[in-house]
Design a protein around this nucleic acid. Structure first.
Lengths: 242, 242
DNA sequence: TCCCTTTATCGAACACCGTTCCGTATGTCG
DNA sequence: CGACATACGGAACGGTGTTCGATAAAGGGA
């Protein structure tokens, strides 16, 4: 993976060239971002410190600041790198619902592929060409079915927000209201027991639907949000009075 | 406001009873939560440290740990306190769209009333009776119009997620992709200029809608999300084939 | 009254964090 | 050969959440 030999040369480094203390990859913006992503995947967001990224590269934290303004910029770069992993299919307006569903799933998956990356995404915009590509794709998909431009413009924001927020919560897990950290299952059970203990006469409907409230998994909840979005969008398409 | 005299006694404290060094409110869970909320409102989330909350109460950070397990629990308590500020009207199914819109606005407002409280909300559930009240209210509002129970159950989650995430982004502002912190207007302008600089032939639709993309304010964007949600919900109500 | 346990408070310390300062190498150009 | 910009990294600064252990006050039998 991080071999010193390259295909271009085709030969191993002679032994006397080996450096004793750290055959490091040269420190570049990209190498730093990759290292950060490696730390993120392995140890999670809470453990992602400048010192750790430095260590991952065989150096100290201070060295990073030559290539990167501060931690926030590094996070932005990591976020952009992940954003670029998603590829868009050719837009096909006749299957716009399906393509939108796929895109949402794809984005969620790319967030979940790299642990905790969702915690970076909120309040951030993938500044590069990625954003423009998404935007153009959405317009190409939805203009032909009659969705007004203003709606499409807002929709980009909305989808990013929803998917980011959902993945954020997913990566965070449910926080215990008592501050201790328990497995998610136990916390859910805690809430469920609490609801079950409420008086029947004041919360009849909630108690009746208790299985529905606590039953669904993350996938079902996510798909529901996407479904609402698409159904809402359908009312803007074609021949609907504004 | 934090007078030492109470209406029950009706008399001021005699001067010789005054303590020299800190006429503190006694350290209780509630007093700590109130102090934290005061710090949050005044100085924002980034400045909310245990030391600062302690200072606000005229003591040190360590003293808080007797009443509160850790910072996370304190934040949860703050979040719950804010959650309880919102009151629900009597559910009127004949105006369910309007009431849902109002509730969304109300929740957003209560998030924005206390600076940065949205940054606590994500991944958290208002554990107390608040949650059950919301749930019961939603069922009472939407069951009569024919929305399936499962949809109502998911909807509670979804609304909380959307409003929390939106307020989160709002309180965070837009992060500059370069890591420096600039006024939001300048960052928007940066993005706008970037989009304007893209080649016309590759991004014709995006460039044509540039005013729509960057034009809307926060209120419009928020309302749009709520509108999509309600429109999607309408397709579940009454006589819609599942 | 004495004594012991529980409740409550807090200064000091620990192990981190992001960031800056400043000295030192390592080229590259004139 | 100097001079200069680039690249790097040890040490320190001021901050963080949290723990430890010493202390004080309050209650409750005997």
């Amino acid at each position: 993976m991080t071999d010193q030999t390259t295909a271009a040369e085709g030969l191993p480094e002679p032994p006397w060239r080996e450096r004793k203390d750290s055959p490091r990859t040269p420190l570049t913006r990209q190498a730093i971002v990759e290292a950060a992503l490696r730390v993120l995947d392995r140890d999670g967001m809470d453990a992602l410190s400048m010192r750790k990224v430095g260590e991952e590269l065989g150096t100290g934290a201070a060295s990073l600041y030559w290539h990167v303004r501060n931690k926030d910029e590094l996070l932005q770069l990591v976020f952009e790198a992940v954003s670029e992993e998603t590829t868009l299919p050719a837009p096909d307006p006749s299957r716009w619902q399906e393509q939108l569903r796929d895109l949402a799933g794809e984005m969620r998956r790319s967030m979940n592929r790299h642990r905790d990356v969702a915690r970076i995404s909120l309040g951030r915009i993938p500044a590069g060409p990625t954003l423009a590509n998404y935007s153009e794709w959405l317009f190409a998909l939805l203009q032909p079915v009659g969705v007004p431009d203003q709606v499409i413009a807002y929709l980009g924001d909305l989808m990013g927000l929803y998917i980011g927020a959902f993945a954020f919560e997913e990566s965070l897990g449910v926080a215990s209201p008592t501050g201790e950290d328990l497995p998610p299952g136990e916390i859910i059970q805690m809430f469920r027991d609490y609801v079950a203990s409420l008086p029947d006469d004041r919360f009849p409907r909630t108690k009746g639907a208790i299985d529905l409230l606590f039953g669904g998994g993350d996938d079902e909840r996510f798909d529901f949000g996407v479904e609402i979005l698409i159904r809402g969008l359908e009312t803007y398409a074609a021949g609907s009075a504004s």
